[in-house]
Amino acid sequence: MAAATSQRAIVYTQSHRWSNNNSRFEKRTGNVNLVSVGDNYTSGRKFGLVCASSLQGSSVMEPIQLPSNGNSGHIPKKSNESSLILIRHGESLWNEKNLFTGCVDVPLTPKGVEEAIEAGKRICNIPIDVIYTSSLIRAQMTAMLAIMQYRRKKVPIIVHNENEQAHMWSQIYSEETKKQSIPVITAWQLNERMYGELQGLNKQETADRFGKEQVHEWRRSYDIPPPNGESLEMCAERAVAYFKDQVVPQLTAGKHVMIAAHGNSLRSIIMHLDKLTSQEVISLELSTLNRHSYALHFQGREVY
């Protein structure tokens, strides 16, 4: 394992060759726990993982370099090689106020804007061909601010497929301009878990009213939803179905994909990729961008 440090910013890279046994690779960084199961991968194929942790208070950020076979740091694009970057949005106005947000469309705070920019600096060297984000503004702001730090200077362009007219009116007719663009696809399926009647309530006041154990059960159980809301299981059903249908074909085609979304929709995708149990996924914590962002690098990995 190689580690590069700059003040309190840390980058870890590891590369592994998997066999068809039941061996597990487990990596902990801060409060992010990533688990990969060996028998979910093709025998003898290589899988590299990059985990970037930007601890709160860090002021200098070192860009991530994905693993490569050479010394140049350049990753040649191959049909069986792709990368997946998962980023949780920066701090929102309701994160700041300690309110349940869920599917309420709340923008970032100035701190959240800074977090998104810093996350972009961390991934500025990683190739990106397409961006997926939720339909909520805090995830879209994060995606746009992060990709503006991209060293290849490509322009992110939101794809409008709401109806035929929107699709036609947003067409680009220059092939050269298309090459210098990154499509940004928005999807409600990647939205945060819907918290039902908790949305807009103060988290501490809600715990005082209903009891800490009840609120903890609503927030951290896998299959128990809050009143008129979604459980993590329900959120995972839509997020993973969309991931399989829309994102996996991009990865298997060798595309480099970034997803900017939310704690629970991203946990759902990680649960699917790493075959986590319902107990393992509820202990997986993804803080806003001042804490963690990470990238998965696929080299011939079978993604289902």
Rank of each mutant, 00 (worst) to 15 (best):
N21V: 13
N22K: 06
S23P: 04
R24D: 11
F25V: 15
F25T: 14
K27V: 14
R28F: 15
G30K: 00
N31K: 10
V32L: 15
V35I: 15
V35Q: 11
V37C: 12
N40G: 15
N40W: 11
T42I: 12
S43E: 15
G44F: 03
G44Y: 04
R45W: 04
F47T: 09
C51M: 14
A52E: 02
A52S: 11
A52R: 06
A52I: 01
S53I: 08
S54N: 13
S54V: 10
Q56I: 14
Q56V: 14
G57M: 05
G57K: 09
S58I: 08
S58N: 11
S59Y: 02
V60E: 07
P63C: 15
I64S: 05
Q65E: 14
L66G: 05
P67Q: 02
S68W: 07
S68E: 03
G70V: 02
N71H: 09
S72G: 15
S72M: 11
S72T: 15
G73Y: 08
G73E: 10
H74I: 14
I75E: 00
I75N: 00
P76C: 12
P76L: 14
K78R: 15
K78H: 10
N80Q: 14
E81R: 15
S82Y: 02
S82N: 11
L84N: 00
L84E: 06
I85W: 10
I85C: 14
R88F: 13
H89P: 02
G90F: 04
E91P: 08
S92V: 12
E96K: 11
E96I: 00
N98Q: 13
T101S: 10
D105M: 09
D105V: 02
V106E: 06
V106M: 08
P107D: 01
L108Y: 05
L108N: 01
T109F: 04
P110S: 03
G112E: 08
G112W: 05
E114A: 12
E115C: 08
E115P: 07
A116G: 12
A119E: 04
K121Q: 03
R122D: 01
I123F: 09
C124A: 13
C124H: 06
D129G: 04
D129W: 00
V130H: 03
V130I: 10
I131T: 00
Y132K: 05
Y132S: 01
Y132P: 09
T133D: 05
T133C: 10
I137R: 02
R138K: 03
R138W: 01
A139T: 01
A139F: 01
Q140R: 08
Q140T: 03
M141I: 03
A143T: 07
A143H: 04
M144E: 07
L145V: 06
A146V: 06
A146C: 03
I147Y: 11
I147C: 00
M148R: 13
M148L: 13
Q149L: 00
Y150P: 06
Y150Q: 03
Y150F: 04
R152W: 12
K153S: 10
K154A: 04
K154V: 01
V155T: 11
I158R: 04
V159M: 02
V159P: 01
V159Y: 07
H160T: 03
H160Q: 03
H160V: 02
